[in-house]
Design a binder for these strands. Sequence first.
DNA 1: ATCATAAGTAAACAAACATTTACTTACTTT
DNA 2: AAAGTAAGTAAATGTTTGTTTACTTATGAT
Lengths: 198, 198
Amino acid sequence: MRPKNLEKEEAIRTIALQIIAEEGLENLSMQKLAKAANVSPRTIYIKYENKEDFLVKLFIDEVLGAYEKAVLEKFKPEMVFAEGVKKLWANAFRFFKNNRPAYALMQYGKSSPLLNKAYQERDIKEGDFFSPIHRFLELNAKAGVIRKLPQEAYRAILFSPMFELTNEYFDCLDRPKQVVTDKVFADCCDAVIKGLLK
Amino acid sequence: MRPKNLEKEEAIRTIALQIIAEEGLENLSMQKLAKAANVSPRTIYIKYENKEDFLVKLFIDEVLGAYEKAVLEKFKPEMVFAEGVKKLWANAFRFFKNNRPAYALMQYGKSSPLLNKAYQERDIKEGDFFSPIHRFLELNAKAGVIRKLPQEAYRAILFSPMFELTNEYFDCLDRPKQVVTDKVFADCCDAVIKGLLK
DNA sequence: ATCATAAGTAAACAAACATTTACTTACTTT
DNA sequence: AAAGTAAGTAAATGTTTGTTTACTTATGAT
């Protein structure tokens, strides 16, 4: 049996992310993707049932999975609160900085009903990547270090400003306004930490 | 001369937003829209040059413009810091709660290169809706009430958690997990305020 | 009342779409 | 070295896409 050419598989995914970042999800077609990846359309359908299946797997594996792994690197729930938060922020920002196409599709995960649904269903199945972070927050809340808030509140306060700054960072690359420096990033992180402290 | 039927114009916009919210921007086609709005495709092209023109105008007028107007309602740059922030948050949350399709397209504004570009260019031309808020922050920073941070940092800390909570709010309507209450909202707002205080 | 005119329609256009068919290629197993 | 088989291709499938053409309708101005 002829073995799969893994380079082609990877090319398909990489170039798909590229097209989505540059032209938008709404402008990604299977034929365009096949041509750009130097592959026959049929080749994509060997691994993926159809376009939706492909997009969901691209999103889950290449974006969500990779992001979650990167965010938790060298993070321990037992860390001192400020250090833990800084680690999470630094990990996330580094991942996106080196991976702009992943950031682009991540944003579509918050817009597209298809990807959003996939995200939610994964959250249920996978036992939630957020759980080490949840334990981290619970420990600090119980110790009286931070306010006690529901999970979704922590999520909103802790992570969304980081996303927004990442957004601004990429916007500045395209049309330089004011550069989002590591200093700005650190200052925001401090503000978020202070807001949660008791 | 036969006058325009304003009801039809409005139907086109309303139904477009609805389709985008329910099926996603990537599944909105001009023919589908025309049929759903009970209108000939040609009718859409009377007011709009093409699909991109339509989407940009829909986004700018129906979403960005309406949102910005709603957020600034009864807000004054001279307000006490905590009160000002609470007003902005309450205004924004109320707008989206009553206007889910607008929220959906707003999210696409952060994903789609087409809409994102339109957003940025508008920021430059229109003199920025953010300027009353900027003045508010500047006044409070000068008075020593809050930290001095660059504009994009304020934006990230002040607004993005509100967006994230709105997101969770709508997710809970679809698949009830934990309801994002006004209490959670207020607690988050307090955390954000505290984080910025000096 | 009728005319001028833009609003509006139904049907059609080529181009692009997701997916499949019919076939060839390359590698493992024997 | 030959056979078996899944990977891979090029070209075609019918459908849907954005947009236009050729025509009809409704209304303010004359």
